[in-house]
Amino acid sequence: MCIWQVEKAIKELENEGRKASAVLITSPTYHGICSNLEKISILCHSHNIPLIVDEAHGAHLGFHESLPHSALSQGVDISIQSTHKVLCSFTQSSMLHMSGKIVDSERISQCLQSLQTTSPNHLLLASLDATRAQISQHPKTIFNKPLELAMEAKALIKKIPGITVLDSCTFSDAAGIDPLRITVGVWKLGISGFEADRLLYKHGVISELQGARSMMFTVNLGTTRDDVVKLAAELKNLSQEHASIRVNDIQPFIGTVSNMILSPREAFFTSKTKVSLKESIGKVCGELICPFPPGIPLLVPGEVITAEALNYLVEVKNNGGFISGVVDSTLSTIVVCSL
């Protein structure tokens, strides 16, 4: 997210006589790309607007000089971290952090009490405390080894023909990129990230995230040098086996202006029926259809289904992608609202 995008959104609301209740940004992204939260914080606070950051993949940021700065250190008001994603707490454990005076901490506490269970899982809470203790023992050096391994892995992978590695030079507007995330492009080999992942999985190499053109790997506190060597070796084998193969690439979906006939709530309670893919064009979608990656809904309940959206879904599925939210995972039929 760039500061000019936030500024533009704030001004558009002001021109309509309205004010943003808050600004919500995801930083870092799944691939480790970080926004310049310090500048965005200053902008938001100049309008007395709180800045909330989904920092799910950034619980480790700030614990080494080579890592990007954490959200809180850049002046955001609320950051939410999935502590289990990079640190060592149990799955489903996370933390919410607050700073500054714009957000009412008592109000946040009341909201949490109305949403959370009165019977929390104490194993999850204990794992969060254990993770905090682990980091606090060596807060500035605990990531020395993972960072060394990540640098070594990238150096080895960059030497492999047909393989590319994402780096910070690609994003001029980004404040930085998490060096522990290794995004490997395989499109020059003529295969998708989904296909490459399936091939590597057979040899015990498992990627964190797959896409149409790439895969992403994560180096963490449990990664060893053997892991890095194996990753590089298997990617080299992949390169040699597919150097002359060419397949069609998935083209990015260019979104159009949404045509909402019903609100998602209205669509949820409306009677529905299943129709074939071809028959669904022009009808009102009755389910949340979300291709993964990127994990962003392409069609939501209440929205008119277009041929362009369906073609993209089919393309993603044919290349090994996963479509979440649909009742029929084969995409032979789609649930639509009966209007």
Rank of each mutant, 00 (worst) to 15 (best):
C2Y: 05
Q5S: 13
Q5P: 05
Q5M: 15
E7D: 15
E12T: 11
L13F: 09
E16R: 08
Y30C: 07
Y30V: 03
G32T: 05
S35C: 14
N36H: 07
N36Y: 00
N36F: 01
S41I: 13
L43M: 02
H45F: 13
H47W: 14
N48D: 13
P50K: 05
P50A: 05
L51T: 03
A59E: 02
H60L: 03
L61F: 15
G62V: 07
F63P: 10
H64Q: 06
E65M: 12
S66Y: 08
L67C: 01
H69N: 04
A71P: 02
S79D: 09
S79A: 14
H84M: 01
C88R: 09
S89L: 08
F90K: 10
F90L: 15
L96Y: 07
M98I: 10
S99N: 13
S99Y: 05
G100L: 14
S105V: 08
E106N: 15
E106F: 07
R107G: 07
S109M: 10
S114Y: 01
T118N: 09
S119D: 06
P120M: 06
A126W: 04
L128Y: 04
D129W: 04
A130L: 11
S136D: 13
Q137I: 06
P139V: 04
K140R: 12
P146L: 06
L147M: 11
I157H: 09
I157W: 03
I160T: 13
P161Y: 05
V165H: 06
V165W: 05
D167I: 10
S172K: 10
D173T: 11
P179G: 12
I182H: 04
V186H: 03
G190R: 03
Y201P: 00
I206N: 02
L209S: 06
A212H: 11
M215Y: 12
M215Q: 14
T218C: 11
T218R: 06
T218E: 05
G222N: 12
R225D: 08
A232R: 02
A233W: 07
E234L: 09
L238R: 15
S239C: 08
Q240V: 03
H242W: 14
R246V: 06
R246I: 15
F253E: 02
V257E: 10
S258P: 00
M260G: 01
M260R: 15
S263M: 09
R265V: 08
F269C: 10
T273N: 00
K283S: 07
C290G: 06
C290E: 06
P291R: 04
P293F: 04
I296R: 15
I296M: 12
P297N: 09
E303Q: 08
T306M: 09
A309L: 04
L310R: 03
Y312T: 15
Y312K: 09
L313T: 05
E315M: 12
V316Y: 03
G320E: 07
G321A: 06
I323S: 01
V326L: 11
V326G: 11
D328H: 07
S329R: 11
S338H: 09
